[in-house]
């Protein structure tokens, strides 16, 4: 057997997504029109938050989570969504003249990527002199030290907009609520469904679950990234199809669980 038992369905899903990716990415490269995307209110709120920060003379804070720098785990896609958002907020801050403080995750291997992305955001806006290396903050290993560092930064330097997009565990309730208590505007989201509750409760505008990927693609304004959202929709239709087939098979008495684990 070439294929490992129990992975047939995963392989079929992968093939479906590979074909869809090939088709829609080529479409994007050729410059053909992609389906229209609905607006995500939280994206507009980021611009509003940057403006608010400038009016109040407070910095913009950006965080990808205490462990948001994972580059080789199953959550790496969230790190990339966070990086896409970092580029966007760095560009916005450079464009409007707001100070950006980036709270870096404790995975220090992601620091070069974070620094280069933030620096590039300023460069793209033609204001590299505004980039301040000391505003990239590192707090050592562990989410506890990260939480302490972020909240003390809020207290010492103030907070206008607090944008948090990435991988969050129990670190986000404290940082989000502290930003709120100190008069900041919270915008953020995570793909980790178990922590979405904290963002829903504490943020003024929230990216719900997968919306962080869509937001990352929208703010990049790159057709290839935007085509990813359409490819994801194809995956969703495949899941709907599986669901319908499963209902029919279960109704006629077949063991769907065994079929799915083939």
């Amino acid at each position: 057997m070439i294929i490992r038992t129990g992975t047939y369905l995963d392989l079929i899903l992968l093939i479906v997504l590979v074909v869809a990716s090939w088709y829609y990415m080529n479409k994007a490269i050729r410059g053909e029109k992609l389906p229209m995307l609905r607006k995500i209110p939280a994206i507009d709120a980021i611009v509003e938050g940057v403006g608010r920060s400038i009016e109040q003379d407070r910095p913009v804070h950006y965080a990808m989570g205490a462990s948001g720098g994972q580059l080789y785990s199953t959550l790496v896609s969230m790190t990339l969504a966070g990086i896409a958002m970092l580029r966007y907020i760095a560009k916005l801050c450079a464009r409007y003249g707001a100070r950006l403080i980036v709270h870096m995750p404790y995975q220090a291997e992601s620091i070069p990527l974070i620094e280069a992305t933030a620096r590039e955001g300023y460069l793209e806006e033609g204001k590299p002199e505004m980039f301040r290396l000391e505003d990239l903050r590192y707090y050592g290993q562990g989410s506890l030290t990260w939480t302490q560092g972020v909240t003390s930064s809020f207290a010492q330097e103030g907070v206008g907009l607090n944008l948090e997009v990435g991988i969050f565990y129990s670190d986000c309730p404290i940082s989000l609520e502290m930003a709120k208590i100190m008069g900041g505007m919270n915008v953020g989201g995570t793909g980790r469904w178990i922590m979405v509750y904290a963002f829903a409760m504490m943020c003024d505008y929230v990216f719900l679950g997968e919306e962080i990927y869509a937001a990352g693609a929208i703010v990049s304004d790159n057709p290839l990234m935007l085509s990813g959202i359409v490819i994801e929709e194809v995956g969703k239709y495949f899941v709907f199809l599986l669901l319908a087939i499963g209902i029919v098979l279960a109704a006629i008495g077949l063991d769907v669980g065994t079929l799915l684990s083939m």
Binding site: L17, L75, L80, I83, G191, W193, G228, G235
Partner: peptide
Amino acid sequence: GAVICAALAALVVGLRTLWGREITLVEV
């Protein structure tokens, strides 16, 4: 439902990365 959607989105990001089309990585 939310977990399935997030997983699909993660898969798409993974495929884009494999094809070298993930701009968050290649443009830096």
